[in-house]
């Protein structure tokens, strides 16, 4: 267990700046999710913490030790970390037992201790019965469990997870998500988890850093990220909000020349800005709603999704009711929203 501190970390590949000044501090035992779309710099950030890439500027500390910075480059093998890769990275030429025992054998652990600790680690991931199998005999979910056991067996200072669940199908993903949470509760290891899946990030981590184009847009608890997004980008990415550009005045918000009544909490805002409205935060078919052309209706099982035209923009509305079936126009009233004044965006 160790803390991780990044200060003003920069990284570029050629002319492409991938990470543009990231600072964060993760306490020992914390669980941080780096969340963002592909190309936002989250994987590069994780790989710099791992030592697989080096920073161009800034510093990385693990506990109080400077591991990367000007004139200091601690290679990955000296950082005492564990890492789980998206592609599992289980060595196909070694058995399950040999894969998991590898980090211990490099640390000069005695043969009997290796056997004991490998067995223990395989117990954590419920693979004790598979110790002598070769990787080609395992399923994707089992391979990823081997990778997790291998990453944890030597009690790393920090466990790094690079999109560990995205190669698995939905059911397995949910199962392994539960197992990672249980392991974390049991071992208390500091963990950093890279994902593009907001549900994964919100469900697992106690801190979420939402990244966009090489910077952290917001670093907060999952609840704060969801309920109080700091920027329109966070609101759009995490909540799946509709982002409306326009002007607020006298308790209404006008976008594309169409006015909406603002909810009570936003009656006082004025001026140009972005209104972030969750797909679930609109009531349809209400008499005081704004009439909008209906483009499409999609049945989602537990609810319906309606697509409404707002100028050249499409509004997504998810609603449990099946109001106004058959009509070409629906009225929509905003029930909750976040307003970001233009100066802040």
């Amino acid at each position: 267990m160790a803390s991780v501190t990044l200060s003003s970390v920069h990284k570029a590949y050629g002319d492409t700046k991938v990470v543009k000044g990231i600072s964060l501090e993760l306490k020992s035992g914390g669980f941080l999710a780096l969340l963002g779309p592909s190309g936002c710099g989250k994987t590069t950030t994780l790989r710099m913490i791992a030592g697989l890439e080096n920073v161009d500027a800034g510093t990385i500390h693990i506990d109080s030790q400077l591991v990367d910075g000007p004139n200091v480059r601690i290679p990955p093998e000296k950082r005492e970390l564990g890492m789980v890769f998206q592609s599992y990275a289980v060595w196909p030429h070694r058995s399950v037992k040999e894969n998991v025992g590898y980090p211990l054998s490099l640390r000069g652990v005695s043969k009997s201790d290796i056997d004991r600790r490998v067995k223990e680690a395989l117990d954590w991931v419920r693979l004790a019965a598979f110790a002598d199998r070769m990787p080609s005999q395992l399923s994707g979910g089992q391979l990823q469990r081997v990778a997790i056991a291998r990453a944890l067996v030597a009690q790393p200072k920090v466990l790094l997870l690079d999109e560990p669940l995205s190669n698995l199908d939905m059911a397995l993903r949910e199962e392994l998500r539960g197992e990672i949470a249980a392991l974390r509760a049991r071992l208390g290891t500091t963990m950093i988890f890279v994902t593009h899946d907001q549900h994964e990030a919100l469900a697992l981590a106690d801190h979420v850093a939402v990244m966009n184009k090489g910077v952290i847009e917001q670093l907060d608890s999952p609840r704060t990220i969801y309920e109080a997004p700091a920027t329109p980008y966070v609101a759009g990415f995490v909540g799946g909000s509709n982002l409306l550009e326009g002007t607020a005045a006298d308790g209404t918000f006008t976008s594309h020349g169409i006015s909406f009544v603002l909810p009570d909490s936003l009656k006082t805002v004025t001026g140009p800005g972005t209104l972030a409205v969750r797909a679930e935060a609109m009531a349809l078919g209400q008499p005081d709603g704004t009439p909008l052309p209906l483009l499409a209706r999609l049945f989602l099982g537990h609810s319906m999704e309606f697509r409404l035209a707002l100028g050249d923009q499409i509004l997504r509305v998810i609603n449990s009711a099946d109001e106004a079936a058959g009509t070409g126009t629906l009225t929509a009233r905003i029930t909750a929203a976040h307003f970001f004044p233009a100066s802040r965006t």
Partner: peptide, 18 residues
């Protein structure tokens, strides 16, 4: 060779030659 296979070895504590 999938580069993560080699990276996994580095993180496990093996140097480049190893």
């Amino acid at each position: 060779i999938d580069s993560s296979l080699e990276e996994a070895a580095r993180i496990s504590g093996a140097g480049p030659v190893r």
